[in-house]
Design a protein around this nucleic acid. Structure first.
Lengths: 184, 184
DNA sequence: GTCTATAGGGCGATAGAC
DNA sequence: GTCTATCGCCCTATAGAC
C-alpha cells in the first residue's frame, strides 16, 4: 500500500485529473482514503501543499529535460532532445501534465514558485528558437496541446507506453520538421 | 454595450477562461458587471445555466460542421471538411473550445445533455474512420489537443484570424496526412 | 433589472483528545 | 496517525421590496 503520504498523493492525483483541482475538495480526498479531513491535514498543511507535492516530481524531471536540451549545440539536436524528453514524461505520467497545463489554479501555483517559474519559457524557447515567426509559434503551441491531451484521452489509456511513445514522437517531429536521427 | 444578458455571458466567458468554471463564482461575475449576485440570478436560474448558455452557440456550430463532414463521400473530403470547420471555429471562438475540452465540469455538462451527447464521438469518428489503428487514434487525439491549446495560448492572441487559421490548417493536415485540395 | 437580506450547506483550516 | 468538534468564510440559491 505504501506510506500514508504516498497513498494520499495517489488518491489526490486521481481525483485532480477526474474533477480538476478546484473541483476536488479535501473531503473527497479523505473519503477516497476512508479517513477524515483532519487526517489529511496531518500530512499536508494546506490544499496548495498537496497540489505542489503531486506535481513536484514531474516538474523536476521536466527541468532535467530542459537542461539536457539546452546543452545541445545544434538546433535540430536541441529540438530532438527536448521533444523526446517531454514525450517520455507525458507517457510515463500520462494525465499529470494535462492537469498542470489546463488547470488555471495549478498554472498560477507553478508560476508563483521561483524555482519553477521560467521552466515553461525555457522549454518553449528550445522549441521555437529566438524571434520565432508566426508559423513556428503556432506549431510549438500545438505541440504542447497535442502532447498534453495524449496523456488524458481515455481512448489512449489502453496503449502500452512504448507504442504511445513511438507514435507521439513521430507526429511531433513531423509537426516541427525535426530530423529523426542525432546529428553525427 | 448590448443587452444585460449578452454582457453577462461575455463576462462569464472571460472569467471561465481565466479561472476555470469551478474557479469562477457568481460573485466574481457580478463584480465584473458591477451588480449583485441577485441580479445575475435574475437572468439565469443557476450557474449551470450560464455555462450552458456560454457554450451553446459554439456547440451548435460544431454540430453543423459534423453534418457537413459526414455528408462527404470520400474519406479525404470528410477529413478536410471536418478539420477546416473545426479550425474555423477554434479561430473565431479562440479560448472557448479549450474551456469546453479541459474543464471537467463542462465536460460532464456537455455529455449529460442528450442533443449534444455523441457530438464529440461524431467528430472523432470522422477523424479516425472505422476501427482505427493505434497511430490514427493517437494522431486524432493529438489534433484535438493541438487545436484546443491554439485558442488558449497568449502568445497566439496577437495573431489575426487569417494567419492563425492558415497555420493551424497546414499543421493539422500534415498531422493526419490529409491532401490539401478537394477531390475533383 | 436591480436591490437588501438571508437561508442552508460545503469549504479550508484549527484545536485538542486518544 | 487518526479521531471529534468546531470556527469563520464563501458558495449557490431564494424571497420580496423598489
Amino acid at each position: 500500500m505504501g506510506t500514508a503520504r504516498s497513498r494520499l498523493l495517489a488518491a489526490a492525483l486521481d481525483l485532480f485529473m477526474r474533477h480538476g483541482v478546484s473541483g476536488t475538495s479535501l473531503q473527497m480526498i479523505a473519503d477516497e482514503l476512508g479517513v477524515t479531513k483532519a487526517a489529511v491535514y496531518h500530512q499536508f498543511h494546506s490544499k496548495e501543499d498537496i497540489v505542489e507535492a503531486v506535481i513536484a516530481p514531474a516538474l523536476a524531471e521536466l527541468e532535467a529535460v530542459a537542461d539536457a536540451a539546452e546543452a545541445q549545440r545544434r538546433r535540430n539536436d536541441r529540438l530532438r532532445v527536448a521533444l523526446e524528453g517531454v514525450v517520455d514524461l507525458v507517457v510515463r505520467h500520462r494525465g499529470l501534465f494535462a492537469m498542470i497545463m489546463t488547470d488555471p489554479q495549478v498554472g498560477r501555483l507553478v508560476r508563483s514558485r521561483p524555482p519553477l517559474r521560467g521552466l515553461e519559457e525555457r522549454i518553449e524557447a528550445v522549441l521555437t528558437g529566438p524571434e520565432p515567426d508566426a508559423e513556428t509559434l503556432v506549431n510549438s503551441a500545438m505541440v504542447s496541446g497535442a502532447l498534453m491531451v495524449a496523456g488524458l484521452d481515455p481512448r489512449l489509456a489502453g496503449l502500452d507506453d512504448e507504442t504511445l511513445r513511438r507514435h507521439l514522437t513521430a507526429t511531433v517531429f513531423r509537426m516541427l520538421h525535426v530530423r529523426r536521427r542525432a546529428t553525427s
